[in-house]
Design a binder for these strands. Structure first.
Lengths: 138, 138
DNA sequence: CATTTACCCTACATTTTTTATAGAGTTTAT
DNA sequence: ATAAACTCTATAAAAAATGTAGGGTAAATG
């Protein structure tokens, strides 16, 4: 399951995607629309900005806006950013790899091998869907 | 990511699958093989038994054994049992459905619609792989 | 039929992660 | 100059995951 952080990120991205005609959107507007705490949402938007998905502008008339084309924002990118690994275990994670302490020989672990396949298939699913798919259905 | 509970369940099922020739396997043997606390593992095996995947026998010479054919134990079944929903949000879960508090109209939520598709594809992946796939690769 | 072996059950404790909250500081547009 | 809005660090409450403790119950063997 996704954390609330990731869910909120998708909400925010959807909102920003729907308001691409205006230059910027206030944190407060997004927060009110979805009943999210202003400060909590701030952290999330900041992470999306650091990842190059959003841009921001300070001062009066400022706010956040979408930099990327919605088709170039796959679900996998957002999930990895806020929730961490797509993989089902650390020993099959691409970006957050860690061996299992109980595993004597990873090369002989059937679970490891099957979960690598699962990871690739899931990654495929989550990379082939993007923010544009969400926006198309709103 | 899978919880340790679910990971241990897969370990135990793998062990039991590999020792199908003997009548029963002791909790202790599995616990030692993977460095799991006896009591913690006991709870997990109990759940697998309640779900009809394992059988058990009490008394001297007792222990656990696999009831199902490994091909009839899909990953999805084990994950749902120990970890809960496969879906990425409660609002798209088949077995654990709950609406989002912030959602005014689910029928108009693009995220909901996309995540339903994602759920179906993930479920497909996790149902098409089973314990037998793990055993084949050990 | 006693004894050993192992399963069954409940409750609690610890640790980690998630979900926020608070408040001060910095930048920028008007 | 001033107000509006972003940035950063630290802290705290709540929830979930992980693990412990200990007694009770059932069954196989001799």
């Amino acid at each position: 399951m996704l954390s609330k952080k990731t869910k909120y990120a998708f909400h925010a991205l959807t909102y920003l995607g729907k308001h691409r005609d205006q230059k910027t959107v206030l944190i407060q507007d997004i927060a009110e629309e979805y009943g999210i705490s202003h400060k909590f949402l701030e952290n999330i938007l900041l992470e999306l900005k650091k990842a190059g998905i959003l841009g921001s502008k300070k001062g009066k008339g400022g706010g956040y806006y979408l930099i990327k084309d919605p088709a170039d924002v796959p679900l996998s990118k957002v999930i990895r950013l806020l929730d961490g690994p797509i993989a089902l275990l650390p020993c099959v994670s691409i970006n957050y790899y860690e061996p299992c302490v109980e595993c004597k020989d990873e090369a002989k672990c059937g679970l490891n091998k099957v979960l690598i396949q699962v990871r690739d298939e899931m990654l495929n699913v989550l990379t082939n869907k993007s923010l544009s798919d969400i926006l198309d259905k709103e």
